[in-house]
Design a protein around this nucleic acid. Structure first.
Lengths: 214, 214
DNA sequence: GTCTATACGGCGATAGAC
DNA sequence: GTCTATCGCCGTATAGAC
């Protein structure tokens, strides 16, 4: 299932199928995606999808893990690191806004998936733990310790670690998840949206850190 | 199509169908929903769905407009009102957190819909304009004027109206949109999530207004 | 208005040739 | 490993009785 042969002319068929599935599942949603469309996108026959991935469900899982991992792995690493709190905030904002500028569809796709398939939430959690070696609870605990330290030193306002965390993620992720809505409300085309995000790269760290300064 | 007869025993069949469709479309997603499941949920026959709504597409549109309207109509009214800026912030946070406590599924559903069906974004916009009588651009302009006024009076930090707006909405909506993920990461069950939201009702206005104070 | 029965197409999955 | 052909089911939609 993981093995590859060097025989195929260009990229592995398996890899091409996974890439195609990625595109189609994101474009149509998991339930709306069609195996035929994925085969066309990959330039192979429908039957080959089953040869490599057995079923649509397994293919969908492979794509979900790929997208979710690319999106949240790096964040978890930053949070679990021993960097200063302010550095973490700046780092996470920069990483997220850059990453999603390249894959703006990812947030909405992940949100849809976890809401429609409850098992995805635990698969997601497991992947984070496997990738970073640390469970999310431990990250939260570390965060709380860093916050408490700054609060005692009177260099930061008091805030619960879970609110700190969700505020930060919300501000980074939501504009991409709701991109079509935002573009409609703010009357932006794709170029306008990119400009909006560019401005946000500057405005967001300021906004977030201002909220916590004494 | 809009007419009702007083003949049916309890609630109109049409209304029961719409209610059932609401539940099922949200639970399964639009593509994953089955007309049979909606019929069962409504306690009627499958054929009756087509009698009232002609097709699955039209039924899906009716449900989307209903959910999106319930969610964003009140917000638009607050934003377009002549209330003080701080009052608007407190009002929107209170309304959103209360509303979504009752219908936590709504944000993820709307996000999925607008990303999968591009035409939904303009339908959404049109509905806002129809409900509130004001186009979103005008709300943004009003917001910018209120911000500029406060900035000139040195009672608030400078911020662009679109960032002001998206920050506020992000902080309110995202935790519900990503609820399954949040519950997994923060290790919350449904009761724990409710407590988290209760704490957020207090923490969020403080956080947001602190970010803008001088 | 509401039901039963059915037409019709599409989709996931598999068999089997090459 | 990749293809063609096909199976069998399920889902939307409609016809027609009551």
């Amino acid at each position: 299932m993981v093995k590859k042969k060097a025989k195929s002319p260009d990229a592995d068929a398996e890899q091409r199928i996974l890439d195609a599935a990625h595109v189609v599942f994101v474009r149509r949603g998991t339930a709306g995606a069609r195996m035929q469309e994925i085969a066309d996108e990959a330039g192979v026959n429908k039957a080959l999808l089953h040869y490599y991935f057995r079923s649509k469900d397994r293919l969908a899982l492979a794509v979900f893990q790929r997208v979710a991992g690319a999106v949240f792995g790096r964040i978890a690493q930053v949070l679990a690191s021993d960097a200063e709190l302010e550095e973490k905030v700046r780092g996470i904002i920069a990483i997220y806004l850059d990453q999603f500028s390249k894959t703006p569809y990812a947030p909405a796709y992940v949100i849809s998936e976890v809401n429609l398939h409850p098992e995805r939430a635990s698969q997601f959690l497991e992947m984070i733990s496997r990738t970073t070696g640390a469970a999310p609870v431990q990250m939260l605990a570390l965060l709380q310790r860093q916050i408490d330290q700054r609060v005692r030193a009177k260099t930061m306002r008091e805030i619960a670690a879970d609110q700190f965390f969700t505020n930060l993620i919300s501000l980074c992720v939501f504009p991409f998840a709701a991109k079509p809505l935002l573009c409609a409300v703010l009357q932006l085309d794709d170029a306008g949206f990119r400009e909006y995000i560019q401005r946000r790269k500057v405005a967001l760290p300021r906004f977030y850190l201002d909220a916590l300064r004494i």
